[in-house]
């Protein structure tokens, strides 16, 4: 048994080497397919991460109309506090809002210099809600207060984000199925070439009573290796790419929430390797079944 596995591995490697170009094409398709899958998964993971963060902030922002007179500020706060379900109410002036933004932008704050002369922000109320479930009805009541122009709360954003994430995942899975089919065909074709190149040897093996495991072993190992090498390349690419992206985003857009490379990429690479291995085994098995008669 051990000898069978050992021989299969040796022959499998030899065969990959012997069909350089075809092997390269197979490995390349596996790599590209899995890289696309990986990119989709990374984007989806980040979107749902952002959605999770936003969901925790159950806060309503009520924007005052531009004509709002700050003398009525206390009345406005009282009115808001009177609404059932409201936790705390804070008034934020437009100047303060700009200061906060400047702080968020950190080193890139000079981006804001363009708007500093004519602050486009508005006075607003920040209202926390006691029960996140009731945020919608509270928001509606807040919107009915006079001189409140517009009400925004995160749930809407969160829901939109979730639906985008969902769509991305579906599209990703669909695309990956297509690419997996292409990969399957290419790997099984590579294996078919191996079978063709070694038809004499296979014929002799059959003739002298080799078991099917003995004949198929090297073919399946070759498929497995093609799949896993491709997955490895995709894994390395996504690892480097993502690390770069995270690094540069932290410098240029520090306020953007983004998942750290670990454990996201680690898990992703494991997944890619498993998918690559399964694709490789399945397609080489298919070819062996189809083109080697016993």
């Amino acid at each position: 048994m051990l000898r069978l596995i050992g021989r299969s591995v040796v022959e499998g490697f030899k065969s990959i080497w012997a069909h350089g170009l075809m092997s390269l094409a197979s490995v390349g398709t596996v790599a590209v397919s899995l890289l696309v899958l990986a990119v989709f998964l990374v984007v989806a993971a980040n979107l749902s991460y952002v959605a999770d963060i936003l969901e925790e902030q159950v806060e309503i922002v009520a924007y005052c109309s531009p004509e709002f007179d700050r003398e009525w500020r206390e009345t406005l706060i009282e009115k808001a506090e009177a609404i059932p379900g409201v936790g705390s109410v804070a008034f934020v002036g437009r100047e303060e809002a700009l200061d906060r933004l400047r702080e968020q932008f950190g080193s890139q704050a000079d981006l804001l210099s363009a708007v500093e002369d004519d602050n486009p922000l508005r006075d607003h109320l920040e209202i926390t809600v006691e029960d996140p479930e009731r945020i919608e009805s509270v928001a509606r009541s807040v919107g009915e207060i006079q001189s409140i122009d517009d009400v925004a709360y995160q749930r809407e954003v969160v829901e939109r984000l979730y639906s985008v994430t969902e769509a991305l995942r579906t599209a990703g899975v669909g695309l990956v199925f297509l690419l997996a089919a292409a990969t399957f065909l290419l790997i099984s074709n590579t294996i078919r070439l191996t079978i063709f190149a070694r038809r004499d040897e296979i014929e002799v093996m059959r003739l002298v009573g080799a078991s099917s495991a003995f004949i198929w072993g090297p073919l399946v190992v070759e498929g497995l290796l093609l799949g896993m090498i491709g997955a490895g390349i995709a894994g390395i690419a996504i690892y480097w790419g993502y690390q770069d992206l995270v690094g540069s985003l932290h410098i240029s857009l520090p306020f953007l929430p983004i998942l750290g490379p670990q454990p996201l990429i680690g898990n992703l690479i494991q997944l890619l390797l498993i998918i690559g291995a399964m694709l490789g085994i399945m397609s080489s098995w298919f070819s062996a079944q189809r083109y080697v008669k016993i």
Binding site: D200, V204, R206, L207, V208, G209, A210, S212, I294
Partner: peptide, 23 residues
């Protein structure tokens, strides 16, 4: 059964006109 075919072939030595040696 197909999986027992190798057992039969191990009992039989076959020689061909074209030798079928691996070059």
């Amino acid at each position: 059964p197909r999986r027992h075919v190798p057992l039969l072939r191990r009992k039989v030595g076959v020689v061909f006109q074209d030798f079928k040696l691996l070059n």
